[in-house]
């Protein structure tokens, strides 16, 4: 079935506002950046970020990517640190769903398009699903190279000595890198990128996925893309692999011992899955590989 044309969509939903909130020119700008980014995996592609009804720094980049990709046949899921119910996630889901005339869901398995802040869904995604991450700091060299132009030249030359040096210093002095979330990754063994502030548990699950991953930075106006089946590995010495987080207990709701869990209260001893949908699936006893 042929997808609807823009004119048909406009006529059908008959509103003065453009389809999916952004005007066509803005969407085109974002789409071009996405296509370019897919051709150069892991590299930052600039784009002119538009003002969104959510603040910069709150996911406006991810939202623009979503709005430029969404169609009326899509089923949209939005999560915030794994949680569908967060107010910010709900507001964005509502905006996307209503402006794009698309269905929304909290069930990962049903979604065709998932926008997420700071987590990768625990349920392995399929090739027909699209993952969009909110990216606050697109520049992985920001802490070691203060001049953005110099950082751009180093990316061009593939010279990441500064990042390796910083890692070496941490390993030598502390025995491990000091990053928590947002540990830099090498995409396609060539480009150093920020995977967005996902925990290390998730950084280790980015490689060789059957679906594309798009990362949008609205405040700093960059898009990064990882095409399907791309090698993504954390910046780490061969003999010092990245260690994922440790947990102090199984999930108090579903019992999982392999999901990414957070402690509800410091020292309280109660751990819960951060991915609420995956946790709910397990509770329902349905197949949800952990």
């Amino acid at each position: 079935m042929r997808p609807p044309t823009v004119a048909e969509l406009a006529a059908r939903h008959a509103r003065s506002a453009p389809y999916a909130y952004l005007d066509e020119r803005s969407k085109r700008e974002v789409r071009r950046a996405i296509l370019k980014a897919l051709c150069i995996p892991g590299r930052q592609v600039p784009f002119a970020s538009r003002e969104m009804p959510i603040a910069r720094g709150w996911g406006s980049g991810g939202l623009q990517v979503t709005l430029s990709c969404v169609g009326p046949g899509d089923v949209v899921k939005v999560i915030d640190q794994g949680d569908d119910g967060s107010f910010n996630a709900a507001a964005m889901r509502e905006l996307i769903g209503s402006s794009a005339d698309a269905r929304t869901t909290t069930r990962t398995a049903e979604a065709t398009l998932i926008q997420s802040r700071h987590r990768i869904p625990e349920l392995p995604l399929r090739a027909d699903q699209l993952l969009i991450l909110q990216l606050p700091h697109p520049e992985p060299l920001r802490r070691v190279v203060s001049d953005p132009r110099r950082a751009a030249r180093l990316h061009e030359a593939g010279d990441y000595t500064a990042a390796w040096l910083d890692l070496y210093d941490d390993e030598a002095r502390h025995g491990a890198p000091r990053s928590g979330a947002d540990h830099p990754v090498l995409v396609d063994r060539r480009a150093l990128a920020s995977p967005s502030p996902v925990p290390r548990h998730d950084v280790l699950r980015l490689s060789d996925r059957p679906h594309p991953i798009l990362l949008g930075a609205g405040r700093l106006e960059r898009i990064v893309a990882i095409p399907p089946h791309t090698d993504v590995r954390p910046l780490a010495f061969d003999d010092r692999p990245l260690r994922p987080e440790a947990f102090g207990g199984s999930c108090s709701r579903c019992g999982s011992e392999t999901s990414y869990r957070v402690e509800r209260e410091l020292g309280g001893g109660r751990w819960e899955c951060s991915d609420t949908d995956a946790c709910a699936e397990r509770r329902r006893g349905r197949e949800a590989p952990t």
Binding site: W58, D80, Q81, G82, D83, G85, S86, F87, N88, A90, A91
Partner: peptide
């Protein structure tokens, strides 16, 4: 920002 703030209409009102 607050992942635990649930989007309850009553709360927002």
């Amino acid at each position: 920002m607050y992942a635990t703030v649930q989007a309850s209409e009553r709360l927002i009102a």
